[in-house]
Design a protein around this nucleic acid. Structure first.
Lengths: 349, 349
DNA sequence: CTTGATATCGAGACCGGTATCGATACCAGT
DNA sequence: ACTGGTATCGATACCGGTCTCGATATCAAG
């Protein structure tokens, strides 16, 4: 403020030629047509003569016209944004879901915008609220267990809402995913069928990850339906990671060397368990069976065989995107649509 | 269309109470003040009496007013969006960068919006163009090697642009990252110091990943500076993945069993290499040294020790965010700012 | 030449906010 | 009572597009 010179931009003289964003009016003027004709020409709407088309196109290119989505969306009362809310990006699973969404949106002219909640419901509320204020054409959010405030927000929004990854519950609008509970049950049954009897469970961040909790509950339920029970449970906090898996596995095996199967809250942690076993010389799956969840690429290449439920992340994302797109054309005929995928269990042994 | 009933919303009678998004005017009316006063009250600008504040606040809450960023940004000629463009989300590295960016933006009121290019320059151009049309307050994009078209777009945008991950080149505006070339050189020197002499290189998607290419070039240069040369190179295509790493490693070792060190284009592929060695009973790092890049969490927990360059992904993201924020307050004083991090080499052996 | 249909265009309102600036009210000082 | 300053408020003009609808031109048919 004290220095008038430094405050100025690098060209204090040529104030006339200030690099201002070109507007549609500029293009129209350059092309010698009206704003409206330029607008129509640029977005390929009808009622424009061939010659005007060309003049406008040329003018736009010359001026480097970029357009203004803000004004466009405001004026046309619709936007080409799809809000996507996921709990984390540190987990490759959600990255794959996003990439599925991007794929599903391909060519539709819709653009996804992401929000990350870090598994925090308050943050989720804020993010959704913020997204709504950009009035997106639709919303894709993770899970079915939003608190009441958030649900109200979603219900009032009057746009298609797709809840992904889970189908155990009542969706606001539509949901696509898999039954986490059933996935846990299926894995328990599969492990029992493999001859396992002394089960342990290793998980991380269960207080935050409601879907992992549902799988856990399903797993336990299936065990007790067969008259079995978990021998030991080892849970930790902090982000679910390979490192935590390795440490928690070392711990649970030290305390319970008799275990013949460990179910993990997901593949990352299970891979950590596999690393521990490799390092400790424990025969997997000969002496100890490990089971994760997701069917990560990584698991397939592991030097030991571990079981996992292959979840169709990319497909879920794609399906969610398509639901948003279709229910956007029809007016909100989405309600109650429920798309369930069934994870396949892969053991490789 | 043939069925007039089904086309309607679920409440054909009460057309009056149509659930329309509440606007600022609604709030103002409900509070008995003008739009302007309501606007000021809601965003805490000055010149509003205590009593008006409260009336407006109450009215907004009752109506469930959400606000409209589109109108707000358009009217105020500034937005609280920061555009972020990364090549991929399948690589956990970029997820970490994003999370660093989110952290750096925390509390600033700015919201990041992401775009994924899949390493495709044309797509990158389109995405950047699209982002500019939301006139964001700043842009964070990956790499320094954009084609001319894209550069022109960025230069004309007149907003702070931060290019991340790389510093080998000339930034449009500012850059923060590390010298990929130097990282490759450093790893070569470290491996030579460990006694390695017969080097192989395994990489994937080198045609797309310019930064991996730069590391490769640096690695080779450092070797030949010491009078050494690569014995073998094995490259593949498709997404860089653990699986590809395992397969390519099996291949290169079959063809060149005499190798005593393999440099990988990144940690994912290197982990695949480690898996192959574990499965094949090859002593790592005793008989064969493996070196990756990034310093992933995963690598630390691996049952064998492999070398890697620890890149400060989160810090890079955070630094980029901060540069955008500060250069947004000052008017574009960013130009030429170059923030370089030096990756530390971790071998654990 | 008139009529009607079709193609092309542009004036002006509008989307939902913010910026600007003048109006009003109230109080202290003289 | 008059002046000036401060606090509070609202009318109005935007922001950069789209939408609606009427105007004009052109051409074939009658």
């Amino acid at each position: 403020m004290t220095n008038a010179l430094s405050a100025r931009n690098h060209c204090p003289i040529d104030a006339k030629a200030m690099k201002k964003r070109k507007t549609l009016s500029d293009v129209a003027a350059a092309a010698g047509v009206s704003k409206m004709t330029a607008s129509r020409a640029l977005r390929g709407a009808g009622d424009v003569s061939k010659s005007s088309q060309e003049k406008v196109g040329r003018a736009a290119k010359e001026l480097g016209y970029v357009g203004n989505h803000l004004a466009m969306s405001l004026a046309s009362q619709r936007s080409d944004l799809i809000g996507v809310v996921v709990p984390s990006l540190m987990n490759i699973v959600f990255a794959e879901v996003l990439s599925g969404i991007a794929e599903g949106l391909e060519g539709s002219g819709m653009q996804p915008v992401f929000g990350v909640t870090d598994y925090d419901p308050d943050r989720e509320y804020e993010i959704i609220r913020n997204m709504l204020s950009w009035n997106p054409a639709g919303l894709i959010i993770t899970g079915l267990d939003q608190p009441g405030d958030t649900l109200r927000l979603l219900e009032n929004a009057d746009i298609p809402v797709v809840q992904i990854m889970d189908v155990d519950g009542t969706p606001v609008d539509a949901c696509v995913g898999l039954s986490q509970k059933a996935a846990g049950e299926a894995m328990a049954d599969a492990m029992i069928a493999k001859g396992c009897r002394r089960f342990g469970y290793v998980g991380s961040d269960l207080d935050k990850d409601t879907r992992a909790r549902k799988r856990f509950a399903g797993f336990e339920a299936a065990l007790s339906a067969k008259g079995l029970a978990l021998v030991a449970v080892q849970t930790g906090n902090g982000v679910s990671s390979v490192k935590a898996g390795r440490e928690l596995t070392a711990q649970i095996l030290q305390d319970n060397p008799e275990l013949d199967c460990i179910y993990y809250s997901n593949d990352d942690i299970a891979v950590g368990g596999a690393f521990h076993c490799i390092a400790a010389g424990i025969d997997v799956p000969g002496k100890l069976v490990l089971a994760g969840f997701n069917g990560l690429d990584l698991v397939e290449s592991l030097p030991v065989k571990i079981a996992t439920s292959r979840t169709p992340r990319r497909e879920i994302g794609k399906a969610a995107a398509e639901i948003v797109l279709t229910s956007d054309r029809d007016q909100s005929g989405t309600a109650g649509k429920r798309t369930e995928f069934r994870p396949e269990i892969a053991t490789g042994f």
